[in-house]
């Protein structure tokens, strides 16, 4: 399903980034980092819309030959970026949305942990497992 999942802090440094296969890790880091350009663009465009009616899902950030990059931004400006294999045609917008929602829920759990220091890299095992399940899940 997803080949790379990243959580990026408000200040644009990665809180969590994981990808499969691991040998392409660097490439995904570059891809996710570059996608922040589009995220920023979309957020600033959205800024004009009413805040409370804002859609958290940013949609397809940009497609590449092999991958599709989707974005999502929480109200606290934490960004979720998900890279999906282009050949995976079964993944429609709705599936991506629901995956982001799952990710957001799990992230919220992480934030609720009193021992987690907001802004630190996420090391939660529960979160990691959830991401793993999103990467493994065969559609």
């Amino acid at each position: 399903m997803a080949v790379c999942v990243a959580v990026i802090a408000k200040e644009n440094y990665p809180l969590y980034i994981r990808s499969i296969p691991t040998e392409n890790e660097l490439k995904f880091h570059y891809t996710v980092h570059t996608s922040l350009d589009v995220v920023d663009e979309k957020i600033s465009a959205m800024g004009k819309a009413l805040v409370d009616q804002r859609e958290l899902y940013l949609g397809l950030l940009y497609p590449t030959e092999d991958y599709k990059v989707y974005g999502y931004v929480t109200n606290s400006k934490v960004k979720f970026v998900m890279v999906v294999d282009s050949s995976n045609t079964a993944l429609r917008d709705n599936e991506i949305r629901s995956m982001f929602r799952k990710l957001h829920n799990s992230y919220t759990d992480v934030m609720c942990n009193p021992f987690y220091n907001p802004g630190d890299p996420i090391q939660s095992r529960a979160f990691d497992n959830m991401v793993t399940s999103m990467m493994m899940q065969v559609c």
């Binding site: 200040e11 644009n12 440094y13 990665p14 660097l26 980092h33 922040l36």
Partner: peptide
Amino acid sequence: TYLVEGWALPIAH
């Protein structure tokens, strides 16, 4: 750019 935003892998590379 990578340093400002703290992307460790791209920094290393």
